[in-house]
Design a protein around this nucleic acid. Structure first.
Lengths: 335, 335
DNA sequence: TTGTACGCGTTATCAA
DNA sequence: TTGATAACGCGTACAA
C-alpha cells in the first residue's frame, strides 16, 4: 500500500500542494472556506499524515527535542534503571507530546556525541542532564543552539538552567534529621569531587552541622557509586560505628540499600536508625518502611523542562536560572 | 553556523555528491582508495553528519523503530512509572542503538494512533505491547508492516510475537508456593477478562491448584488495578481471612503493595505470610525483604525484541512465536 | 565516477 | 482574497 502524500490530496481536491499545505497548517486566511473543508475531508478519507522527514527537511524546524544523558561512567545499558530519569522523562515526554513534539533520547559517552546528535536529527533544542565540565557545551556555543541544562553546576554563563537549590535542600534535610539535637549524621553519597550537584549537597550538610554546633567529621562521609549496592556497603560500615544512628543519603537509591542492609541486621527503623533519602523517586512511596526524603517532584520538573525548552526555542524571554521547589517529605524512616 | 551538507563535502573534495554518499555508506568498491581518504578527512574536518530526515526521505528506510504502548485505560502520563516498560526499553534501546537505529516512543490511546505514528515517522517497523483486540492491528495488515507483538494473546494469526509461557510460569509459581502442601493461595491480579496475558496466568494458577488437589476458591482471586495501591487494598482484605497465608501476585508492583500492607500490620514475612510476585522488576531486588518472584529477564527480553524486529524488517526468516525463558527466583518473601 | 531525477513538504513569488 | 507555480532542502540510486 503506497504512502499517501500531499500530492494525492492535491489531486483529489483538484488543487495544488501549496493549498493543501496551507490548510494543514491552519493558514486559513489563504484559503477559502469550502476548500478547507474539501481538503480536510480528503485528508481524513485517504488517511493522510504528513511525513516528519519531509517536513523537517523542508521547513526550518523538526519538532524534535533531544534528551541527552551523558554517561561516561556507568554501563551504557542502564538508562532507565535510574528511576530519576524515568520519572523525569515521563513528565517531559508527556508535556512535549501534548505540544506536538517528539523526544529523541540519547545516551552520550563521547565528547562530540552531542553535536552529532543535533545534526543527525535536526533537533530544535535539547534538554541536557548533569553536565559539569563545559567541553561538551563549547561546540554548542557556536551554534547558538537552544539548550536547557538540568542539574548542572557549570560555571560558564549564558546557558539556561533548571535546578533545585541543592545546598539549601540538603541543609534543610540535615537540619530535619538533627531534630535540634547534636548527634552525628553519616552522609552517604556519590563521588562528589566530580559532581557540582553533590558538592552543593555536601556543603549544605556541612553548613547545617556547623550551625547546630556539631563538628564535621569527614570520616562520616561515605563516597561511592550511586547504587543500591553501595548503599548496602556503606551501611555495613556505619553499623560498626558506635553512636552513629542517623544516615542521610544524597540519592534515594542509596537510601534503599542502606535500609535493606540495616534491616538485614535486624535493626529497627526508625527507632534504632533514622534514614533519609533524596529525590523522592517513585519507589520511596512503595518501600516498607516508606522512606523519608527530600521531594523534588520529579514528574513536574520534567513537565516544566518541556515548557522551558519550548520557550527557549521559541525565542521567548526565559530566566537563565530556574529554581524549582523542594520539600521535606516526612514518612516512616525518621522519627 | 550553517549546516554542513553532503554538497559541502563534495565541493571540498572536488567530487560529486554520489561519490561522497558511497564513501559514507561504505561502498568502497565504487570509489578509489585515495578518494575515500580525502572524503573521510573532509567529513571529519567539517564535522559533517548526514541528516536523518533527508536520508529517510530519499531512501526507503528511516532506521526508526516505533515502540508502541497502548493505554486506553490508565492516565496517559505515566509511561515510565511502570518499571516493566522502563527496563524493557532499556534493553531494546540499547540493542537498537548499537545497530544504528533510533527508537520513537509512543503512547497510543486512539484506534488510529498506530497508523498515524507509522506514517508520521516513516517507521521501518514497530514493537507493540500488550494488544488483545485486533482492531488496531487490522489497519496494519494492509501494509504488511513489520510488527513484533509483545505479550499479546491475539487470536489472529500471521503476526510475529514474543511472549513468555505465562500459563506455565504461573503454574510453576503456584506450585512453588504450595511447597507440596494443600493450603489456599490468594491470587492478586489485574482485571483478567480484558487481558489475555492475565487469563493465562490465572489459568496456570488454577491448574496448579487442581493438580495439587486444592479446591479453586474464586473468592481468593482479587482483581483490581495493577498498582501499588490496589496491592495494599487486596492485602487488607486478605488479612481478614483466616487460614490464608500465601499470596501470589501477577505483577511485582502488586506484591510490593501487599508486602507493605502486611508489614504495616506487623506481620512477619515469610513466617506468617508468604508473598510472591511476577516479572522480577528491578525494585524486587531492592526491597526489604527481597521479593521472591517469577523472573523474565526483562532487560534481555528487550534486547531480544530489538534483534527480532530488525530481522523481521530485514525479511529474514523468523519464528512467528518466540517464547522466552522464565525462572522462579527464590528470595526472602517465601520459605 | 558523475550527472540528475526523485521523494515530500514549505514558502516566496506571481497571477487571477 | 484565493490559488498556482516553482525553487529549495539533503541524500539516494540509476543511467550515462
Amino acid at each position: 500500500m503506497r504512502r499517501v502524500t500531499i500530492n494525492d490530496i492535491a489531486r483529489e481536491c483538484q488543487t495544488s500542494k501549496a493549498t493543501v499545505s496551507y490548510v494543514i497548517n491552519g493558514r486559513y486566511n489563504k484559503v477559502s472556506q469550502e476548500m478547507v473543508e474539501k481538503v480536510e475531508k480528503a485528508v481524513k478519507d485517504l488517511g493522510y499524515v504528513p511525513s516528519l522527514s519531509a517536513k523537517s527537511l523542508a521547513g526550518r524546524e523538526s519538532n524534535l527535542i533531544g534528551v541527552i544523558i551523558p554517561q561516561m561512567d556507568v554501563g551504557e545499558k542502564l538508562v532507565f534503571d535510574n528511576p530519576f530519569y524515568s520519572e523525569f522523562l515521563s513528565g517531559l515526554e508527556y508535556y512535549l507530546r501534548k505540544a506536538g513534539c517528539g523526544v529523541v533520547l540519547s545516551v552520550i559517552n563521547k565528547h562530540n556525541g552531542f553535536e552529532e546528535m543535533i545534526k543527525k536529527w535536526n533537533l530544535d533544542g535539547a534538554v541536557v542532564f548533569g553536565i559539569d565540565n563545559d567541553k561538551m557545551l563549547d561546540s554548542l556555543g557556536k551554534y547558538r543552539f537552544p539548550v536547557l541544562l538540568i542539574d548542572s553546576y557549570i560555571t560558564k554563563t549564558g546557558y539556561h538552567r533548571m535546578n533545585i537549590r541543592d545546598e539549601e535542600a540538603c541543609y534543610e534535610a540535615t537540619k530535619f534529621l538533627l531534630h535540634g539535637e547534636q548527634e552525628p549524621i553519616a552522609l552517604v553519597t556519590g563521588q562528589y569531587e566530580k559532581s557540582g550537584l553533590l558538592q552543593q549537597r555536601v556543603n549544605g550538610y556541612k553548613r547545617a552541622l556547623c550551625e547546630a554546633g556539631c563538628e564535621v567529621d569527614l570520616s562520616l562521609i561515605y563516597q561511592g557509586d550511586i547504587t543500591h549496592e553501595y548503599g548496602m556497603e556503606a551501611a555495613e560500615k556505619i553499623l560498626k560505628r558506635q553512636g552513629v544512628n542517623k544516615i542521610l543519603a544524597t540519592a534515594d537509591i542509596l537510601a534503599y540499600g542502606i535500609l535493606n542492609q540495616l534491616q538485614n541486621h535486624g535493626r529497627k527503623i526508625p527507632e534504632e536508625y533514622e534514614v533519609m533519602g533524596f529525590d523522592d523517586t517513585y519507589q520511596s512511596r512503595n518501600m516498607y518502611p516508606r522512606v523519608t526524603t527530600v521531594g523534588q517532584n520529579i514528574l513536574k520538573r520534567g513537565e516544566k523542562a518541556g515548557e522551558l525548552i519550548l520557550k527557549i526555542i521559541g525565542g521567548q524571554q526565559v530566566e537563565k536560572e530556574n529554581y524549582m521547589d523542594f520539600q521535606i517529605i516526612e514518612r516512616d524512616t525518621t522519627r
